[in-house]
Amino acid sequence: MDFRETDEETRFRLELRKWLASVPHRRQGSADDSDTVAMRFTAGRRWHSALAEGGWLGLDWPTEYGGRGLDGAYQIILNEELDAIDAPQLATWVGVELVAPTLLRWGSPAQRERHLPPILAGTEVWCQGFSEPDAGSDLAAVQTTATRTETGFVLTGHKQWTSWAQFAQYALVLARTGEESARHRALTCFIVPLSAPGVRVTPIPMLYGDAEECDVHLDSVHVPADAVVGEVDQGWQVVMTSLSLARGAATLARIRTLGSLYRHFATETLAARTAHDVLPQPLALTGARLEALRFLAYRKIGEMVEDGEPGPIASTEKLLWARFSTQLAELALDSAGLLGVTEAGPWGGSTGWRRHLYRSFANEIEGGTNEIQRTIIARHVLGLPC
């Protein structure tokens, strides 16, 4: 990927920078312990609305759905400028970064026309119902069933660890439409309104205090035939697209969060040293790893510009950023000693780095566990016989 900006890209950056300077925002990590999950979600949704009204979301979407038809280089510029002002994350990222591109790839024209504009505007919030109590990392073992009827399908099952479901209106749900022995060859993706009769959403309190994950119970939920995304029994391809995006373009925002965390840590560390001290080696190495991770993401964006898919490199990046997330929190806590456990720190008031450490454990599981990523890398990147 050529990192030299064209004149058009430079104009885009300057226009974006000017706009960002004129819009008030809540700095990433400024929430405290008194903020509820709903308050944080509302703040993130408000930021979504501002970006959407300014025309800064859906940069690579087709213009007929409200996008700007730009390539991945502009998404990189957007993330760099958002990073420079410590902008908050989108609360609606599942819809914008995962569901919408999946619908662009696999959805029917009617599905795209119905759902993409409100996703872009932030008026329609989505979640994804993939994992189950007995089918987390092994999605081919999904047990939620979809039984065909004269008018559509009836879904019955239990989805778990569904992010932001308590705020969502729709879910992209993976269900079994054939025998269990068929594994991934008998799965189908559906659009399910969470207001439909038989749907029950229960938030799950997490170790770090939030309840951003949910149980979603589907008790004989009827959906019409046109709720199928892609083709019946071809849901594996649909869900693999979504997961590749979770390990792909969406990680630019995750790296932005890690960069903000690193700056907090570096500022605290350097403030305690004199002007004659050298940069602490762990701090310097951590910063170097972050930059390497950032350019790995840029390489992946370059691949997506060429063929539309992030490819196997996305698994490498997902594994590395998940591990980096945990390592950064561990380093910060180790550096602070007992104060890291007992005193206030960045990112969440009195919970400080402990909050981030607890959340980082989930990073190493969601979107495909570290073990799954290592297997993908071994098979499809290194060509090992495993």
Rank of each mutant, 00 (worst) to 15 (best):
E213Y: 12
Q237R: 14
G198R: 07
F190P: 05
M304H: 12
L279T: 11
E231F: 06
R200K: 14
I313L: 15
K318R: 14
L283G: 05
H184A: 10
A272G: 04
S220P: 03
V228L: 07
S260V: 04
Y208V: 01
H217A: 09
C189F: 00
R185T: 12
E268R: 11
L245I: 05
E309G: 04
L258Y: 05
S220Y: 03
R254D: 06
A272F: 01
W321D: 08
A225P: 06
G209V: 10
R289T: 11
L293I: 15
T274Q: 10
P193I: 05
E212F: 04
I301Y: 15
L290D: 10
F190K: 00
I301H: 12
S220T: 09
D215K: 02
A275S: 11
F190D: 01
L320S: 08
D307P: 01
S242F: 02
R299N: 15
Y208N: 04
A186F: 01
L270G: 03
K300G: 04
I313Q: 02
E317T: 10
A246Y: 06
D307N: 12
E268M: 10
R289L: 06
Y298T: 09
P205M: 02
E303C: 07
W236G: 12
W321Q: 10
G308S: 02
R183H: 07
I204T: 08
V192D: 03
H276D: 14
T241L: 02
